[in-house]
Simulated scan of single mutants.
Amino acid sequence: MPYKWTSPPQDTPQTMVLWPHNSLPARGMASFVLATFTMITIPVLGLLGSPILWGMLPFTLAAVWGMYWALQRNHKSRQINEELVLDDTMAHLRRTNPNGDVQEWDCDRYWTQVTKYDSEGPVPHYVTLRGKGREVEIGAFLSEEERIALFDDLQRALRR
């Protein structure tokens, strides 16, 4: 699951780290790009020595570069990290966005409310934390099942 408690439940402060699921690691991406380049090159080999090769080559390279660029952009946009720290009195959420911006929210733990919007949010089972006059999302990048489990975990953790 792409979130975990980094400290035991009985300890304070409790810390939860959330991150998006990355199904294609860097090594897998390199293998995929190399395999695609190889598969595209096989039909072009028959054109060696022909002037048509020079007409096909830019499009072949553009296709491989476009795929590499799209995979790199996807990888960079998944560099989100959220950290929730629950100590005896405060709840503190820190979100690091892909561009490096940091957003922070804190509230008295007693007044912190966890809310799950089953269908009203931007994604199904949208989970938010509310307190101190603000409502902030947490784990919007998780899958539906993971957001449901996150909601249950947060409710248990805040009840302690």
Rank of each mutant, 00 (worst) to 15 (best):
P2Q: 09
Y3I: 04
Y3L: 03
K4V: 01
W5S: 06
W5G: 01
T6S: 07
S7W: 00
S7F: 00
Q10W: 12
M16A: 10
M16I: 15
M16C: 15
M16V: 15
V17R: 08
V17G: 06
P20H: 02
P20Q: 00
N22D: 10
L24Y: 06
G28Y: 05
V33Q: 02
V33S: 03
A35K: 01
A35G: 11
I40W: 01
I40Y: 07
T41F: 08
P43S: 05
V44S: 04
L45E: 01
G46C: 00
L47E: 07
L47P: 01
G49S: 05
P51G: 05
I52V: 15
W54C: 08
G55K: 04
G55V: 09
P58N: 04
P58Y: 02
F59D: 05
T60A: 12
L61Q: 03
L61V: 12
A62M: 13
A62S: 11
W65N: 06
Y68I: 00
Y68R: 12
A70G: 11
Q72I: 07
Q72M: 11
R73D: 10
N74C: 04
N74V: 06
H75Q: 15
K76S: 13
S77H: 13
R78G: 13
Q79S: 07
Q79C: 05
I80N: 08
N81F: 05
N81M: 09
E82I: 04
E82T: 05
E83K: 13
T89C: 09
A91H: 09
H92M: 11
H92Y: 14
R95C: 12
R95V: 13
N97T: 05
P98C: 05
P98M: 04
V102S: 02
Q103R: 14
Q103G: 03
E104R: 10
W105H: 05
C107W: 01
W111T: 10
W111Q: 08
T112G: 03
T112A: 15
T112C: 15
Q113F: 02
Q113V: 04
V114Y: 02
V114G: 02
T115V: 13
T115S: 09
D118M: 04
D118V: 12
E120W: 07
P124F: 03
P124R: 04
P124K: 05
Y126L: 03
L129H: 11
G131K: 07
K132W: 08
V136S: 14
E137S: 15
E137P: 14
I138R: 10
I138N: 08
G139L: 01
S143N: 10
E144M: 07
E146R: 12
R147S: 01
L150C: 06
F151I: 00
R156A: 14
R160G: 10
R160Q: 13
